[in-house]
Amino acid sequence: MTSVGLLVPLIAKPSQTEAITDFLHTGYTLVPSEPLTREWFAVKYEDSNPPTYAIFDTFAAEEGRQAHLTGQIAKALMDNASSLLDVSPEIAQLDVLVGLVRPNKGSGEGTTAGVTKGLRVLFTAKPDKVDAVRDFLKSAIPLVEAEPGTTYWYAVEFPGTNTFGVVDFFPDDAGRGAHVAGKVAAALFGSADELLTGAPDLVKLDVIAAKV
């Protein structure tokens, strides 16, 4: 089972968007050199200004995460950060509370694991509602399983904070739209006033490359 992960936003210099896309494709080719990396996604935040990209990856245990942080992809990122990025990358370590991995037929073909769109949703629990938010996310799997267009879905927690998130991926925009209009999203947004300090922050993603 996946238990930990990383979310690394990358704020690109406006002149380097093509170069950072190329860099992420190169990162994709290096993932097989890290056998303890379970799933790896490189994405672009849609309509972001400044242009923002990210790497989201998961691991079965802390050993795998540490191997990745000292591996070839992380080294290449740090070596190229000053030329590609406006600011140094902030590496957010997270716990994966629960996940759904349901590859599409033929997802092993191509470079995006059968998905082209995604979502990154972050939200902060009220101090007295942290356990309730955690329980809500863990209980959402049956609702996600009922969404045939949701291929990968991860509920995450940022340790030491009251911040949680959902990162998920879809074959196409129709699958993403069905999820946004579905029961999980309705339950989360419908509970925002009771459980959260504010409205969830939702960002649409374009998948650049993915390895699962």
Score class of each variant (00 low, 15 high):
131 D>H: 05
57 D>Q: 14
206 D>R: 04
47 D>I: 06
137 L>Q: 14
206 D>W: 00
110 G>H: 07
76 A>Y: 04
124 T>V: 15
103 P>L: 12
16 Q>A: 13
29 T>G: 08
170 F>Y: 15
120 R>C: 09
140 A>T: 15
107 S>K: 00
57 D>G: 05
60 A>T: 13
72 Q>Y: 03
123 F>C: 02
119 L>Q: 11
19 A>W: 12
80 N>Y: 05
128 D>Q: 09
70 T>L: 11
75 K>T: 14
171 P>S: 05
71 G>R: 09
118 G>L: 03
74 A>R: 12
172 D>M: 05
113 A>D: 09
168 D>P: 06
20 I>H: 00
189 F>G: 04
15 S>V: 15
173 D>K: 04
155 A>M: 07
47 D>T: 07
123 F>W: 12
96 V>A: 08
101 V>D: 09
57 D>P: 05
132 A>R: 15
68 H>T: 10
1 M>L: 08
177 G>S: 13
94 L>W: 09
172 D>Q: 03
147 E>F: 07
187 A>N: 13
28 Y>D: 07
199 A>N: 12
200 P>Q: 08
33 S>I: 01
185 A>S: 15
183 K>A: 13
85 L>K: 08
190 G>A: 09
113 A>H: 01
37 T>Y: 01
134 R>E: 14
39 E>K: 12
146 A>I: 04
178 A>F: 11
143 L>K: 08
97 L>D: 11
199 A>D: 10
197 T>L: 13
41 F>A: 00
196 L>K: 04
191 S>F: 08
117 K>H: 13
168 D>I: 01
46 E>L: 11
59 F>V: 10
123 F>R: 02
111 T>W: 02
177 G>D: 15
132 A>D: 06
206 D>C: 04
49 N>R: 15
7 L>D: 07
60 A>R: 07
150 T>K: 13
62 E>K: 08
132 A>K: 15
159 P>L: 11
86 D>S: 14
210 A>Y: 00
50 P>D: 01
185 A>D: 08
84 L>H: 06
92 A>D: 11
